[in-house]
Simulated scan of single mutants.
Amino acid sequence: MPQLNPAPWLSILLISWLVLLALVFPKILNYTFPNSPALQNTQKAKKEPWFWPWH
């Protein structure tokens, strides 16, 4: 059964992972956002009841 022969597919798998690890992932990890995230307001929002006009 030739599909069980791992010789060509194992090398393709390993080479593709090496390309991803060496080229793609460092570019993604070095990406910086143009706006730094701001801290959210820690005060609780005032909850007002809903106004239902048909109620």
Rank of each mutant, 00 (worst) to 15 (best):
M1S: 14
L23I: 15
S36Q: 13
I15S: 14
E48G: 02
P34N: 07
W9Y: 14
L13W: 14
K46L: 14
L10K: 10
S16K: 04
K47V: 14
E48D: 08
V24K: 03
I15T: 13
V19H: 07
V24Q: 06
P37R: 00
N41Q: 03
M1I: 09
P49A: 14
N5G: 04
L39V: 03
W54A: 13
I12F: 06
K44T: 05
N41S: 04
M1P: 13
Q43C: 02
F25W: 09
I12A: 14
A7S: 09
A7N: 06
V19Q: 04
E48A: 05
S11V: 06
L18V: 09
S36C: 02
L20K: 03
N35H: 11
L13A: 15
F51Q: 10
L18H: 07
F25T: 06
Q40R: 03
L39H: 09
A22M: 09
L29Q: 11
N41M: 00
L21A: 15
A45S: 10
W50Y: 10
L39M: 10
Y31L: 10
S11Y: 03
A7F: 05
K47A: 09
E48P: 00
L29A: 15
N5C: 14
Q43A: 13
L4I: 02
P6W: 00
M1E: 13
W17N: 08
W50I: 13
V24P: 01
A38T: 11
A38S: 13
H55P: 01
L29F: 14
A22K: 08
I15W: 08
W17C: 08
W54M: 11
P6V: 01
A38P: 02
L10F: 06
Q3P: 02
P2S: 04
A45F: 02
P6F: 01
Q3T: 04
P8N: 10
W17A: 11
A38E: 13
V24H: 05
P34E: 07
N30L: 14
L4V: 03
P8F: 06
P26E: 01
I15G: 12
N5F: 11
A7Q: 10
N5A: 11
A22T: 15
K44I: 01
P37E: 01
W17L: 15
N35E: 11
T42C: 04
A7M: 05
P2T: 02
A45Y: 02
L21H: 09
W52G: 03
Q43I: 01
P49K: 15
K27W: 11
W52K: 10
W54I: 12
A7K: 11
W9M: 13
P6N: 01
A22G: 13
F33D: 10
S16Y: 02
V24G: 04
A22N: 06
P53V: 06
P49W: 04
L18M: 13
N30R: 15
P53C: 03
K47T: 08
W9K: 06
W17R: 07
K44Q: 14
Q40D: 01
P26Q: 06
A22F: 09
F25Y: 10
V24T: 06
P37G: 01
